[in-house]
Design a protein around this nucleic acid. Structure first.
Length: 220
DNA sequence: ATATCGATTATCT
DNA sequence: GATAATCGATATG
């Protein structure tokens, strides 16, 4: 074959950019629908891609666990804005966490990205996390957790808060490559005390890159 | 394998 | 001044 002489389709053509309408829905619906989609980050050096395997829904002003519960502030303003924007917050003096805003402009709601399965740029992700891939068990820990995946992708509030996931010109995008999720498991949310019992955490059943102890990947 | 604890700072009361 | 949508290290069964 003369494969190398043919114009190679760009990566972006093989995975469709998610639209703003995709995010203009209830966070529970979006959280479920995001499983299996691709998070893509364009950097000066290369591209990072991870498949979404774990999400959590935060319901806005009616949800005691949501940052938007007590109304709009400078920090959470993005959650009240248009759908499909990156909401990044800094937590415990150590970690950034990445969310996407949901529902129409003026209505709060969002989805927290909790874990990815690395697809492209694994070496770069490991570097960003100061990890070596020589240890086989290290692979699972690169992007399995909200703080971990944010660090692997170089997400910070200064750089990324408010970015449009749905813009063709954005360096932070969400795409659909046609991957089909077999089965979804819903559990209580992790790391919170308020409204923790609500079944608002969504994971791809059996996926090894889901965060937390193995037991959390099954039920609770 | 599960439990506990300390780190470290932006944000809000 | 208290809190937090976490992580990694350490301790213990």
């Amino acid at each position: 074959m003369t494969d190398s002489l043919m114009p190679r389709p760009r990566e972006s053509l093989r995975a469709l950019l998610l639209s703003q309408e995709f995010f203009d829905r209830d966070p529970r619906v979006v959280a479920r629908a995001l499983l299996g989609k691709l998070l893509a980050r364009r950097t000066p050096n290369g591209t990072l891609v991870g498949r979404v395997v774990e999400t959590e829904a935060y319901l806005g002003t009616g949800d005691p666990a949501a940052h938007s519960f007590s109304g709009k502030t400078p920090r959470n303003a993005v959650l009240f804005g248009p759908p499909g924007l990156a909401y990044v917050y800094f937590i415990y003096g150590n970690h950034y966490c990445l969310n996407v805003s949901c529902l129409p402009d003026g209505v709060a709601g969002g989805v927290l990205f909790r874990a990815l399965e690395p697809v492209i740029g694994i070496e770069a992700m490991a570097r960003a996390r100061d990890m070596s891939l020589s240890d086989k068990s290290a692979l699972k820990r690169i992007t399995s957790g909200p703080g971990r995946m944010a660090e692997a992708f170089g997400i910070t509030r200064d750089r990324d808060n408010g970015k449009d996931f749905t813009s063709a010109r954005s360096d932070l995008q969400l795409r659909d490559d046609g991957y089909r999720v077999r089965r979804v498991v819903v559990t209580r949310r992790i790391g919170i005390v308020k409204a923790a019992e609500e079944p608002l955490r969504y994971i791809i059943e059996g996926n090894p890159f889901v965060s937390g102890p193995k037991a959390w990947a099954k039920k609770t």
